[in-house]
Design a protein around this nucleic acid. Structure first.
Length: 552
RNA sequence: GGGAUGUUGGUGAAGGGGUUUAACACGCCACCCUCUCAAGGUGGUAUUCACGGGUUCGAAACCCGUACAUCCUACCA
């Protein structure tokens, strides 16, 4: 019997000579502090990064940093049909813009690799997985299964028809007790097969599992003979790779989405089969999306905000996205932030227990609010630098304007900025052009005015009078405003709005109309920041030109 | 069909048997301030914690049932 198993194992894995012990020696216990957490971000390289991937990687990073542990990046490319070239490099760039750089990684494009526990690309670890699978076959705990796709489909169909549990277990696991001699001849004949775990679980028996986020959960044991190696490329399935990699890489904490919690019975059995210690698990809430009346998992296809590129394209500062996601992860984060406005987010004591176990809706309004506050606290130099960096990537024309008018642009960003309660009108960098374009002659010159709400002659009269008698460059704000008021008196416009409301018939109009006419002449808009600041920055020449364009 | 988890306002949520007339933040609404906007200020915004039953002197909190929601139920991760 044992010899037969040996023969089977050697037939399937003829070149595997190492043992599990060999690998355990190769990847010894990490030399870290007692409390150090080893976390990993383990994405599939499918060419995009989802907010649902970002949250776990953020938590991984925070956990590792605050425990002086290790945060590493592992490329889970076992699904060759979905693997996209350069996907990991893209993920690296996302992690880099958010400054969540891993301590260990492997990048193919630059041939960079760091860390003693690699390879960090699963397709390069085939031999390791095969060693572990070979061991299982030798022990009689795994077997080749010759079920075809069609056979599996019909099993599934009949199970579903009979309202039975779906899966390859019990009597459906047709090949688990196939005589080894027969398996040998089938393999020698070139039949396709997958390797399945010979489950010893009993579905009617329960076990308790402790999740760091959700607490104690009771599951039935796994009794499904799950595939651990695929037939086509002989790569392991996710579950098996998880077991081998997180064991050998000494991961202490696995942070992943709630959707994985149902796999716990499988992982529990797998770790038990090898006698390995399970890592601690933190299953984090799914990010959901309200779509009309229904709530569903946020989707990269349907929801632009699901993709991390959305935030970059819109020009949200990276730290703002981090703040928003931390707020979802731990609701006491906001209160902490209030008390520690300048602390780095890794200083926040993250608590898995405080994480909600139900899904959370990602609130873009909240993100906007965080962003407005954040940008309002930046210096004009920082805003300029960030807008420029954004525009160089997404609006080249605007970036040239910004370079040409550097100090001028900074003055615009400085409007009502350097004060205790700064102005909060920029939510993200992509909207800054839309809110400041009229300050630049290049954009202003072709724009249209709309004075239709006013008498045309009166518009000219007000503008002429103002330019001739009341405008002086370099006035103080209060002097500037007094002069506007004086003009209002001269032209019979009310300056006291309370009086105007009661006695409107006494006046031609109010100061609101006067300032709005000037505002439109200078900006084409009726809503802008403080007119005084606009005029001060615009300067005499521009003001003169713009007003005369209308009065002449 | 089976399994797991959850259900407190428009959103994220705090609260885990009696100072809860349910905190805080975002949003929304109103008013004030005001040259427009933004900001700021003040106030409002769940008579009630999915529903039904039970335990208890007392339940949003504990127990049971139901409903609903989400995820899993692939040789995908």
């Amino acid at each position: 019997m044992n010899n037969e198993r040996q023969e089977l194992a050697n037939l399937i894995f003829p070149n595997i000579t190492k043992t599990i012990e060999d690998y355990e020696k190769l990847y010894p216990e990490r030399n870290l502090g007692e409390k150090a957490k080893v976390t990993r971000f383990a994405p599939s390289p499918t060419g995009f990064m989802h907010i649902g991937h970002f949250m776990p990687s953020l938590i991984d990073y925070v956990l590792a940093r605050q425990s002086e542990g290790i945060f590493y990046l592992r490329n889970e490319d076992t699904d060759t049909s979905r693997t996209v070239l350069g996907a990991v490099e893209y993920i690296r760039s996302v992690l880099n813009t958010y400054d969540l750089n891993p301590d260990e990684y492997e990048y193919r494009d630059t041939n960079e690799t760091k860390g003693e526990y690699g390879p960090y690309i699963q397709s390069e670890r085939k031999e390791i997985y095969h060693t572990f699978i070979k061991h299982l076959i030798l022990e009689g705990k795994a077997y080749p299964c010759f079920l075809t796709g069609e056979e599996m489909d019909s099993i599934r169909e009949s199970q579903s028809k009979d309202k039975r549990r779906i899966g390859i277990y019990g009597r459906y696991a047709k090949y688990r007790d196939l005589p080894i001699s027969e398996a040998l001849t089938r393999i020698k004949n070139g039949e396709n097969y997958t390797i399945r775990l010979k489950s010893t679980g009993d579905f009617n028996r329960k076990f308790k599992f402790n999740d760091l986020a959700s607490g104690e959960i009771e599951f039935p044991e796994n009794d499904i003979d799950i595939p651990i190696m695929k037939s086509k490329d002989r790569l392991p399935t996710y579950h098996f790779a998880h077991l081998v990699d997180d064991h050998l890489m000494h991961t202490t904490h696995v942070v992943r989405g709630q959707e994985w919690i149902s796999s716990i019975p499988i992982h529990y059995e797998l770790f038990k089969t090898f006698g390995f210690k399970m890592p601690k698990y933190i299953h984090i809430p799914l990010i959901l999306k309200k779509d009309g009346d229904t709530i569903r998992k946020i989707s990269k296809r349907l929801d632009p905000e699901a993709k991390m590129t959305y935030y970059e394209e819109k020009g949200y500062p990276p730290l703002v996205v981090i703040e928003a996601v931390m707020t979802i992860a731990n609701s006491n984060y906001e209160a902490w932030r209030e008390g520690h406005p300048d602390a780095h987010f890794t200083e926040f004591e993250f608590s898995p227990k405080k994480m909600s176990s139900s899904g959370a809706l990602f609130d873009l309004d909240k993100l906007d609010n965080i962003s407005k506050n954040y940008i309002s606290k930046l210096s004009k130099e920082e805003v300029y630098k960030n807008v420029l960096a954004w525009s160089e990537k997404y609006d080249l024309e605007f970036s040239l304007i910004l370079k040409k008018y550097k100090d001028y642009s900074m003055e615009i960003y400085n409007i009502e900025r350097e004060r205790k309660k700064p102005r909060k009108d920029y939510t993200y960098y992509s909207e800054i052009k839309d809110k400041t374009w009229y300050m630049y002659d290049e954009y202003f010159k072709d724009s249209q005015y709309d004075f239709s709400a006013y008498d045309q002659e009166e518009v000219k009269n007000i503008l002429k009078t103002y330019l001739k008698d009341y405008y002086i460059e370099f006035d103080e704000e209060n002097v500037w405003f007094e002069k506007i008021k004086e003009m209002c008196h001269q032209l019979n416009y009310a300056t006291d709005m309370k009086d105007y409301k009661v006695n409107s018939e006494k006046y031609k109009g109010s100061i609101v109309e006067v300032t709005n006419i000037i505002r439109i002449a200078l900006t084409t808009l009726t809503t802008t920041p403080n007119l005084y600041d606009i005029m001060r920055i615009l300067g005499k020449e521009r003001i003169k030109n713009r007003i005369e364009k209308i009065t002449n």
